[in-house]
């Protein structure tokens, strides 16, 4: 386990380094922030000064080395636009995105696994078929469109829920989140549900196919031959066997909705990281873009590591040292 963790951390470091180069070069290629940042009325002298100040007069490789040196000192650069450290900007927005993604995932898991189990165990029944067809529909509908429909239906026509924003934020155990106030929860329902639809469909399908595959295996027959009660057969013998692919997808989807909740955040005006990155791309705020992408990569690597460690708890045959 320790060897695995050390090796994994070293690998992650290399990946981060390579990705930082790719991202830096990519952002460099998008365009020159000077054109956006400096007002057209500025004099040539002011222009020169600003460029120098931002370090944009140096060649790209030199800028990259400075960037690496700053990272080594714990600085991810300062936003051109907000004139504040990029990492602070991102971390400020992180809780909002995290609570949204987390709520979405909870909805997807706690609805998806039972529905998938039902669909897998009763594959021939009307209800089982309906669940599977429903998941195909969920799969294929674009998120932004469903989001707009939900706003029209629940916020505008029925007037049950607010259309946008994060709502009131409460504090519980030192954590500030809109999960802790009624108003915050009311604001959270629609965007979280919207964000949950795709992972929900994925989890339903995976659980259902895993269930019908596993039910025909020998050890499920022996579980029944031992006279076990049905709940024990389904929730222990079956579920523990099909959980590996489900956990993989949950992990992947969590990273994806954390990093790319952009569409949902835009529709529901949710003040999260997704909105920040869209604004920063529009203004070519290089440090924020680079920092954001690096943070995203870090999240992906962290969740993947967590999933791999979870594997070894779920399946005793998994040896972490060999991964």
């Amino acid at each position: 386990m320790t060897i695995f963790l050390i090796r994994r951390l070293m690998q992650s470091f290399v990946v981060l380094l390579i990705m930082s180069l790719v991202v830096f070069a990519g952002v460099y290629a998008i365009g020159n922030p000077v054109d956006v940042l400096i007002s057209p009325e500025a004099t040539e002298l002011q222009r020169e000064q600003t460029i120098q100040q931002l370090g944009l007069d140096r060649p790209m490789w030199e800028q990259y080395l400075i960037f690496l040196k700053n990272i080594a000192e714990g600085k991810l650069g300062t936003s051109f636009v907000h004139n504040r450290p990029a990492i602070t900007l991102i971390l400020e927005r992180f809780p909002a995105t995290f609570e949204l993604a987390f709520s979405a995932l909870v909805i997807a898991v706690f609805l998806g696994i039972p529905l998938g189990l039902w669909a897998g165990l009763r594959a021939d029944s009307f209800s089982g078929r309906s669940i599977i067809s429903g998941s195909i529909i969920l799969f294929s509908m674009p998120t932004f469109w469903v989001g707009l429909l939900m706003i029209i239906a629940f916020a505008i026509n029925l007037n049950w829920l607010p259309t946008s924003g994060r709502g009131e934020v409460g504090t519980f155990l030192g954590i500030r989140s809109s999960l802790f106030t009624i108003d915050g929860l009311r604001h959270l329902v629609l965007p979280a549900t919207n964000l949950a639809l795709y992972p929900l469909a994925l989890i339903i399908r995976l659980t259902a196919s895993g269930t019908s595959e596993t039910m025909s295996l020998d050890f499920m027959r022996s579980a029944r031959a031992k006279g076990l009660h049905a709940p024990r057969i389904v929730f222990v013998h079956l579920l523990k066997n099909i959980l590996i692919p489900i956990v993989t997808v949950i992990g992947l989807q969590f990273s994806v909705i954390l990093a790319f909740a952009v569409v949902t955040e835009s529709i529901f005006s949710w003040p999260g990281m997704g909105r920040l990155i869209i604004e920063s791309i529009n203004l070519l705020d290089r440090p924020v873009i680079v920092a954001y992408i690096l943070v995203t990569i870090l999240i992906f690597m962290l969740i993947n590591l967590l999933v791999d460690v979870l594997y070894s708890f779920l399946d005793p045959r998994v040896r972490l040292e060999k991964m």
């Binding site: 295996l217 020998d218 050890f219 027959r221 022996s222 579980a223 222990v236 013998h237 523990k240 066997n241 779920l314 399946d315 005793p316 045959r317």
Partner: peptide, 8 residues
């Protein structure tokens, strides 16, 4: 195959 692989 008759014993559940993931349970002790």
């Amino acid at each position: 195959t008759a014993l559940n692989p993931v349970l002790r």
